[in-house]
């Protein structure tokens, strides 16, 4: 056999097989969302989920279960101004104490 053919068969085929296996191993995860590592910055657009059936009760486009979480910032900022209006039902509810818990990691 010619030298070129020899190299192709004995070196090229194993390399091609290795590349195929590497592609199978790493290719599937290449397009996933970045992995969350605590302590490292994890910038992500805020998302707010409700179960699908509740999404229809809200006035959102397409019955999407993700609320407009971009409004969350407006809600967080506006809380201090809304609490000043007396007699307003949402504000009165907001003034009630809430339960729950918190955690850190």
């Amino acid at each position: 056999m010619s030298p070129i053919l020899t190299v192709l068969i004995f070196a090229g085929v194993p390399i091609a097989i290795m590349l195929a296996i590497a592609a199978l191993v790493y290719g599937a995860s290449a397009h996933r969302s970045p992995r969350y590592r605590p302590g490292r910055p994890f910038p992500v657009r805020p998302v707010w989920f409700l179960a699908a059936r509740h999404a229809e009760a809200l006035d959102r486009t397409g019955g999407n279960a993700v609320l407009a979480a971009g409004d969350a910032h407006a809600a967080i900022e506006a809380r201090h101004t809304e609490a000043d209006r007396p007699g307003d039902a949402p504000a009165a509810f907001a003034a009630q104490s809430k339960g729950g818990a918190r955690g850190n990691w």
Partner: peptide, 9 residues
């Protein structure tokens, strides 16, 4: 009604 929010607080 449960809801989950992931984002900056």
């Amino acid at each position: 009604t449960f809801s989950v929010y992931v984002g900056p607080l």
